[in-house]
């Protein structure tokens, strides 16, 4: 990367505090495809000049997949360990790159002693657009391009965030086409509830195939995602349908970074 990503430990050593902590998440840290999204979120943060930091190697799984799989012990162990780290750094505001981390830290950490102002990266992008700090200029033009947005369950239904990701696409002057099942009626990609880590139960079809077929009905040039797990499921679906050349699956952060030439 062209710039150094600051860590909390470094900031603390320098006696500084960030405006916002970027919670990367496990997928964003380890999954090759999701790492690109992580770097693009950093590029956006760097571009607008927000003082931010990441936890780096001090970050740890939020415990979300453990909780959804039914292991409340492991979840709370993870949560309390993370809360200790976050509170030690006096964290006030967090932006996450993943709706699952977003939901868990925002809703399930306060009861365990960790209360922060938590936003998802699409909400950050929306805020930056509203404040005039982020535009769609200097990069790739998405004007008139057909984009369909897949609502992540834990962002949409889970927390009622439907407009922020769409706002980020509107500013591109792109043609936003909605799938038949969208917003509160959106269809899951198939990865939630710890399904990401197991084979699906037996059935007629995989959920991501059902979803990608619906996305293809809108005849899009881009499928926009807001979650690293959805990204995996949708990308697999597109590969299966042999449409990788014509249709790109991109995260809202990647689209935003591209539009701004970052």
């Amino acid at each position: 990367m062209e710039f150094k990503v600051p860590t909390m430990a470094e900031l603390m050593a320098a006696g500084e505090e960030p405006e916002i902590l970027f919670w990367v998440g496990c997928a964003g840290s380890y999954d090759e495809r999701a790492q690109k999204i992580t770097r693009d979120i950093c590029k956006i943060l760097h571009h607008v000049g927000i003082k931010y930091a990441v936890l780096g190697t001090e970050e740890s799984c939020t415990g979300d997949p453990a909780k959804r799989a039914g292991n409340e012990f492991l979840f709370q162990m993870q949560a309390m360990t993370n809360i200790e780290v976050l509170n030690a750094y006096n964290i006030k505001k967090i932006v996450t790159g993943c709706p699952h981390c977003f939901n868990t830290i925002k809703n399930e950490y306060p009861g365990l002693g960790g209360s922060y102002d938590v936003i998802h990266h699409t909400q950050l992008i929306q805020d930056l657009i509203n404040e005039g700090k982020l535009k769609a200029e200097g990069g790739e033009s998405f004007k008139g391009k057909k984009i369909t947005f897949h609502d992540p369950c834990y962002l949409g239904r889970g927390n009622g965030v439907y407009e922020a990701p769409r706002k980020a696409l509107e500013v591109l002057d792109a043609q936003l086409v909605e799938m038949k099942r969208c917003k509160s009626n959106g269809l899951c990609c198939g990865a939630g509830g710890a399904q990401m880590f197991k084979e699906p139960e037996k059935g007629k079809k995989d959920i991501n195939v059902e979803r990608i077929e619906e996305a293809l009905e809108t005849n899009p040039q881009f499928i926009a995602a807001g979650c690293p797990f959805c990204m995996t499921m949708l990308s697999d679906g597109i590969k299966l349908k042999d449409k990788e050349q014509e249709i790109k699956v991109l995260d809202i952060a990647e689209i935003t970074a591209r539009a701004n030439g970052l």
């Binding site: 990367m1 496990c26 840290s29 380890y30 999954d31 780096g56």
Partner: peptide, 17 residues
């Protein structure tokens, strides 16, 4: 500390590329 079998020491490697 991650659902996949990766080393916690490698968690920040994404920033190197």
């Amino acid at each position: 500390q991650a659902p996949w079998k990766y080393s916690p020491a490698d968690r920040f490697n994404w920033a190197q590329e």
